[in-house]
Design a protein around this nucleic acid. Structure first.
Lengths: 239, 239, 239, 239
DNA sequence: TATGAATGAGAGTTCATTCAT
DNA sequence: AATGAATGAACTCTCATTCAT
């Protein structure tokens, strides 16, 4: 009555316990898909087992419990995300170019990991227990990296010195995330990277027209600079 | 399906303080708090009832089921949010001022409705059934309004004509949301509005320093303008 | 919707005696007994589980829900009833003999399946959802069979040609059922088959005495027959 | 904490508070309809109250509880049924005519009380608590009456002396009930009385053709009668 | 390793019934 | 007499998790 033959090992790239390791991957893959589609709480272990064509109990050989399975999803992906990002940033000169790269890479990554994003944003990120996770550390490191790059930009006088690095970082990441979520709702996830240039432009150059923008700055530019920031500041405050 | 007859019902000293409609408000208030603190799925009806000091069954007098209770939370708040925003925008001239107001108001609203935000962003927004809700319609209307204001800005030549209104809107809202979520994690929700000016500046003026920015534009400004956009475009694409 | 994690699950000394398929039978048997005794609506899943000495949840491994459990009761029995009846009818010549056999077999079956009958008549038969059931189909087939046999009898001139086959069938089945129900109330279910002969006689020979019956028919018999049925008809109608 | 008021007996056949009495009737009428349509257990007090356009609590002014409401349905109807039947039987001579009348009247009553029948047969009759009810007594009396009439018939030599009166009665009533139930399923309840003649004929004359039936009896008729019944009996037993 | 039947705590929900008004 | 908000016991059903095989 032997079911399962699986005579030929399937997709595993390397091998440790070639079979075992690949089965863990299988579970993770299936779980990611189902979680993304139906939501974590609406998904049952039984469903995952059924789709993965394994027994429910087998899932508990690889994962402590349902939440562990959930938290295991970002592990590999974040590792991947972060190391690959570092490669991509390798050799790029200039803060703004790095920033542009980060925006592009982030969108690109979300585009290629659509199901994962939804889970991350909806079910993982705010879970307090997630914060004691390796993946969470990577996210923090990534966030720090972005803030550092911005700080560099400020030192290099490419970015205005009054910019709050962490706030800017959050704004950029937030913009990326929101666009991703909108994309997922509207089914436009596959063209996410197209938003790179406009997003970059929003943040780097702002949205003002040259004419309306320059009027004031230009005069500033030709005059002594000391009062500049103050004036801007004043303008911004009078809501 | 049915219930046993309650054979002996002697032991309960029932209180009855029929405050009428206000009980619905009470439930809503308690539910919002508990949902925000523990999460929707981690909250039980029994808990809500206990905190509200009412019977579990009473909740079902006012709400169809747990999800209906959840979806009822945004109802009033969004109505409030939107109508109050309109008031705030009343009489404001200038697209950028309106935009600044919207940023401020949004942050302000989230600051005053901290628990609500978390629920909205985590448990409500992406639920497909939410989209057949009055509150969802209001959110859509609000989003449209923002995009319209941006469009106006483009017509008035205050905002660059190559700006994608909806994308900009999503970027701004995303930035606000992300900052709010970060704030909730870090316990900084009560100073949210302080982010108004920096956020506004990011989007309106960009983050580039005058010097680095003007170098190129200034030359453009002094020359014939026709090639301007093209050059910017080219620059932006070379990632 | 969801369930709390079972934080500590230490206290249970679980037994596992996987008898496989026979557990479904056990549940069915216990359920039949309790349903018959207390009625479907008055029986709780917990009671069945307790008597069967299994966990409540186990019942839901074998049956979709309580109603499915109810509707599963007739499945096997009707299959049994019908196939066994066919065997019993095998080789019997003559419509009336077949009819007698059916009456006897029906009573015999009810006698041997006392608890089942009550459930069938009280909780199953009139439930609209039952009618999309295999068991219901068998009941229909049985009913058709009886009507067919009566039709045969009419062709063979053993049964009066003016007999409405379906009505006669319903009358016979109704009589059987009512007697069964009375028997169940009076605790006489074990002598049900004794009613075979009298019931058969009621329907086949009628209840009239020879004398009172023959008086008229005999005269008819000795005279030309054509006005016979009419006269009978007239008599019957003058209520 | 005294519940139960009902200090004064309620069930008076005339009227005390014309309004009150008519409201009780209203509730009874509505309840009968809903019970018949959806079944007793599937009907809620709230539904009845809603349809009757009264408050749920009001129902408990007139009825002890839900079951009391159920058992109150037959009360009036059975009273009616029985007294009206007596009138109908008034002046009818001859057992068979009375029997015919009873069949007709029963079908007629069910035809006119369609919703009531279903409730009686499905939810009331077998409920043990019903048997301590006035209505149940009436049913018993009716059943006795039928058996008595049959006994009379035997004394008058119109009905064969070997007929078991109670069994015959049960067979007749069962036939009527089954035909009614079939009628309710098939939506033919409104032509129920048409079954009077065929039913009567089944029981009184039997279903055998004259020819097949008479062959034997005729010979008997011409010979001494004593061995007649025995022979029939013998035939009937050899199943 | 793998299985999947078995578990059982506990969740959401229902609804007959009560009683202050 | 009438109301209907309030009650809360009890029910069905779910499902993460376990463990004997």
């Amino acid at each position: 009555m032997a079911h399962k033959k699986r005579e030929f090992s399937d997709s595993s790239p390397k091998k440790r316990t070639p079979q075992g390791e690949s089965k863990k991957r299988l579970i993770l893959k299936v779980a990611t898909g189902v979680f993304a589609e139906k939501g974590f709480h609406e998904t049952t272990i039984a469903q995952i087992a059924q789709i993965a064509k394994i027994a429910e109990g087998s899932i508990y050989h690889y994962f402590e419990n349902k939440e562990d399975l959930l938290f295991s999803i970002p592990e590999e992906r974040m590792e991947n995300f972060f190391s690959s990002l570092r490669e991509h940033l390798e050799g790029i000169k200039g803060t703004l170019s790095k920033l542009r790269k980060i925006i592009w890479y982030h969108l690109h990554f979300y585009e290629k990991n659509q199901d994962y994003v939804l889970i991350l944003l909806q079910n993982i990120r705010l879970n307090p227990r997630f914060q004691s996770t390796r993946a969470y550390q990577l996210i923090r490191e990534f966030a720090k990296l972005v803030a550092q790059i911005i700080e560099e930009g400020k030192k290099e006088k490419v970015i205005r010195s009054d910019v709050d690095s962490r706030l800017l970082r959050d704004a950029i990441l937030g913009a990326i995330e929101h666009i991703t979520i909108r994309g997922s709702i509207l089914g436009r996830l596959s063209t996410l990277t197209e938003a790179t240039k406009p997003l970059y432009d929003f943040f780097v150059s702002g949205i003002q027209t040259q004419s309306s923008m320059v009027t004031l700055p230009l005069r500033e530019f030709l005059r002594p600079k000391k009062t500049f920031r103050k004036r801007i500041g004043r303008r911004s405050t009078k809501i």
